[in-house]
């Protein structure tokens, strides 16, 4: 499961990226999807990891310490194989 994590500012998102990467937890800094927020901003895309697992807990702690605001689950709808023009569609749901 992949999560989008939002922050109060792009500075906070950058700091969180540094903290998580520094701890060996892979994340990607991306623009906030427009379905979540229409103004410009950056967020983190991260694997949620196993709930309760060491890396999962560490990620949550670090995100909390960096001022993470909201978490959104990425829902991906696979393209229709019978239609060549069909493509993967992403939507987002508040998490947890």
């Amino acid at each position: 499961m992949r999560l989008i994590v939002t922050f109060p500012s792009s500075h906070a998102a950058l700091a969180a990226e540094r903290a998580l990467l520094g701890a060996g937890l892979p994340v990607e800094l991306i623009p906030v999807p427009r379905q979540i927020r229409s103004d410009c901003g950056f967020c983190l895309l991260a694997d949620a990891g196993e709930p309760g697992s060491g890396p999962g807990r560490r990620r949550l702690q670090l995100l909390g310490a960096c001022g993470a605001r909201e978490q959104w689950q990425v829902i991906e709808t696979e393209p229709d194989p019978s239609s060549p023009s069909s493509r993967k569609v992403k939507s987002y749901e508040r998490y947890p």
């Binding site: 792009s10 950058l14 800094l29 991306i30 623009p31 950056f42």
Partner: peptide, 9 residues
């Protein structure tokens, strides 16, 4: 940061 974001989009 903006360039990185642009390439991602």
């Amino acid at each position: 940061l903006l360039m990185r974001g642009f390439l991602y989009t």
